[in-house]
């Protein structure tokens, strides 16, 4: 043994021959285990539900971003999904050069349609202008943007008179200052002389005559400083309703406005429109 390699003894030292009765006992137990083993390897119950949940989660992981991207297409600046839109936009910009400008113009239109705050629309218009400015052929978008700008100016003018007259005069004066019937009648006597000239100063002052000179002076100041182009029209809307129809050439431009009392206001709006447009145009350029 000393002369041999001890490794040769390993096999004989540890080799095991399982005897027949032991083998039979083992095989019997294995057979019993086979018969009691769950026959269906098909997952059921919890395992199945877990697999289904996994599959659903996988689908959700794929579908959710797509849904978000689609939903984000409708978003405007400030919306929750707007950053998503910006991301998809950056990707789509690789194949579509116009996508950014198109989105900006769409946002302007959508904001106007939803009557968003003026400031938001103005910012959107600025963004749209810079975006369309980068295009090689901005014509179609420019015309859409121009239409939107025009409507914006229109709205500005529609909303401007009440805001101007309302601010300085306060709540007590408001019922008189409103452009409906009452203020026109006291204004009528003095109107032919003043309304024909349509000078900015006396017109806003006229509704205030009842309340006092100080407030009228304030009103004058605000109107002249804030909306220089609007103030003459403001006077016209307030009291020169009967004089206006004759000299007014503008009505065709403002055919859309509203009903009864708007017949006067609408015509005056036509005047206002041109005035306001010139004013804002000069400001913009």
């Amino acid at each position: 043994m000393a002369g041999n390699d001890p490794l040769d003894h390993l096999s004989s030292a540890y080799r095991v021959e399982i005897e027949d009765d032991t083998r039979d006992r083992h095989l019997a137990e294995i057979g019993a285990a086979i018969r009691t083993a769950p026959p269906t390897p098909v997952p059921t119950g919890f395992a199945l539900r877990r697999r289904l949940a996994g599959a659903l989660a996988g689908v959700a992981v794929v579908v959710a971003p797509i849904g978000m991207a689609v939903a984000a297409e409708e978003s405007v600046p400030g919306d929750f999904l707007y950053p998503m839109k910006q991301v998809t936009e950056r990707v789509r910009a690789f194949v579509d050069d116009d996508i950014e400008a198109t989105h900006r113009v769409e946002e302007v239109e959508r904001l106007m349609f939803t009557r968003a705050p003026r400031a938001a629309i103005t910012r959107a218009v600025e963004r749209a202008e810079s975006a369309t400015g980068e295009l090689i052929d901005p014509t179609p978008l420019d015309s859409r943007l121009e239409r939107a700008r025009e409507r914006l100016r229109q709205q500005e003018l529609d909303e401007a008179p009440p805001s101007v007259s309302g601010d300085p005069e306060g709540s007590g004066q408001q019922p008189e200052g409103s452009p409906s019937g009452p203020p026109d009648e006291p204004g009528q006597p003095g109107k032919p002389g003043e309304g024909g000239e349509a000078t900015p100063a006396p017109d806003p002052g006229r509704p205030n005559t009842g309340s006092g000179n100080g407030s009228s002076g304030e009103a004058q100041m605000t109107t002249t400083t804030h909306l220089p182009g609007v103030s003459p029209g403001d006077g016209g809307a307030d009291h020169s309703s009967e004089v206006d129809p004759a000299p007014d050439d503008a009505p065709p431009g403002s055919g859309n406005p509203d009903a009864s009392d708007a017949s006067d206001a609408g015509e005056s709006r036509g005047e206002l429109g041109t005035g306001g447009r010139d004013g804002s145009g000069s400001v913009n350029s």
């Binding site: 390993l10 540890y14 080799r15 095991v16 399982i18 032991t22 083992h26 137990e29």
Partner: peptide, 29 residues
């Protein structure tokens, strides 16, 4: 037999080696 020999070489206990073989087949089931 090879499995039992292996287990016997590891633990040096033939009774245990036979049980280990049995155990392996029950796990295989």
């Amino acid at each position: 037999n090879p499995l039992a020999s292996f287990a016997n070489g590891m633990v040096h206990d033939q009774r245990f080696a036979e049980d280990a073989v049995q155990q392996a087949f029950l796990e295989l089931v």
